[in-house]
Simulated scan of single mutants.
Amino acid sequence: MPQLKGGSVNGFEILKDLPQDYTEIKIAMFDFDGTISTLRQGWESVMESFMVEMICGGNSPQEYVAREVRQYIQDSAGIQTIFQMRWLCEAVKRHGLNPVVFDEWEYKDEYNRRLMEQVETRVRRLMEGKADPEDFLIEGVQDFLKSLYEAGVEIYAASGTDHEDVLREAEALGVKKFFRKMAGAPKRKADCSKEAVLRELINEKGFGQRQILIVGDGKVEISLGSEVGAVTLGVASDEVRREGINPVKRQRLIKAGCHALTGDFKNYKLIMHWLRLAD
Rank of each mutant, 00 (worst) to 15 (best):
M182N: 02
R168P: 07
L201C: 12
R180N: 12
R252A: 09
I214N: 11
N203D: 08
K194E: 01
S193M: 02
V166W: 00
R168D: 06
A236R: 07
E227T: 11
V240E: 13
R180C: 04
A230D: 10
E221S: 10
F178H: 03
V166M: 05
I212G: 06
R250F: 13
G218D: 01
K219Y: 14
V228D: 08
K249W: 09
K255W: 07
I202Q: 05
L213I: 15
C192S: 14
A260I: 07
G208K: 05
S193W: 00
R199L: 03
D217V: 07
I254G: 05
V166E: 02
A185W: 02
G216A: 13
V166T: 03
P186M: 10
F207N: 02
S223L: 04
V235G: 07
E171Q: 15
R168A: 08
G218N: 05
I254Q: 15
M182H: 11
G244N: 09
D191G: 12
F178A: 14
R210W: 03
K189F: 10
A230C: 14
V197A: 05
K205F: 06
T232N: 03
D238T: 03
F178R: 03
L233Y: 07
N203L: 07
V166Q: 06
I202K: 04
F178G: 08
E200M: 10
R252K: 15
C258Y: 01
R210G: 11
S237P: 02
P247N: 15
K255R: 13
V175G: 03
F178K: 11
R241T: 10
L213T: 15
E243C: 04
G216R: 10
